[in-house]
Design a protein around this nucleic acid. Structure first.
Lengths: 118, 118
DNA sequence: CCGAATCCAACAAGATACTG
DNA sequence: CAGTATCTTGTTGGATTCGG
């Protein structure tokens, strides 16, 4: 059972839901990875191809998400190795946020285009 | 009419809603500031006190949010100076995301506490 | 195929001091 | 009151190389 990193956490982490969420979503890739995994388990290579990200970065991001309890990692002792990633229960409970962000993001994109026409 | 910074934007910004949202919410304070403003216009000093943030940092964060079109800044030419910040229409349309994050954040906090009991 | 190790450039953000 | 200017620090994430 992975625990959160013991590094200095922001004030009010674990108290204020916004501070807490912000900390977890801060990274450049967290949202994208969670979105990819929301459609089901994926292998390491699959993730790397669907997002444009280097191995090193993807690996470290996944490790964070695993430590935070959002992602479950399963390694199959085969040759060649196979590793799958999937959302945990807390990870899956993120779905409504994902949906809200998708809706809003698209609205913001429309807003951007409207700006450019002026 | 403020335009987005002309710096190199992430690939798929303005195309993928998640990439777009991630870029805007990346900062450590964006979510908190938007949350504070969601209850109505606030003055600079008010914001600074309700969040624990230095003047320099708050000032630069607000400038970003303004450039992104999420926040509207109004300066009243008085002595002493008074400046108010409020959400724009796009900023206000962020509310559902805020709500979803609040719900999820609280759920995640519960999850954290449950972990600690084990 | 998956990922660890190392090194490094870029940026975000805090401390502090000063201004209209 | 509401900033700006400057300096310094910390953290991210990318490139590259190596290992099981």
């Amino acid at each position: 059972m992975p625990a959160l990193a013991e590094r200095p956490l922001p004030k009010n982490f674990g108290v204020c839901p916004f501070v807490t969420a912000q900390k977890l979503l801060q990274g450049k890739w967290a949202l994208l990875i969670i979105h990819e995994l929301s459609s089901g388990p994926k292998r390491f290579g699959e993730l790397q191809r669907s997002i444009d990200i280097t191995q090193a970065t993807l690996s470290s991001q996944l490790k964070n998400l695993e430590a935070e309890g959002l992602v479950l990692r399963t390694a199959y002792p085969e040759i060649p190795p196979r590793v799958e990633y999937e959302l945990t229960a807390v990870g899956q409970s993120f779905q409504p946020v994902l949906d809200a962000i998708e809706t809003w993001g698209n609205g913001y994109i429309d807003y951007l285009h409207a700006q450019n026409k002026e």
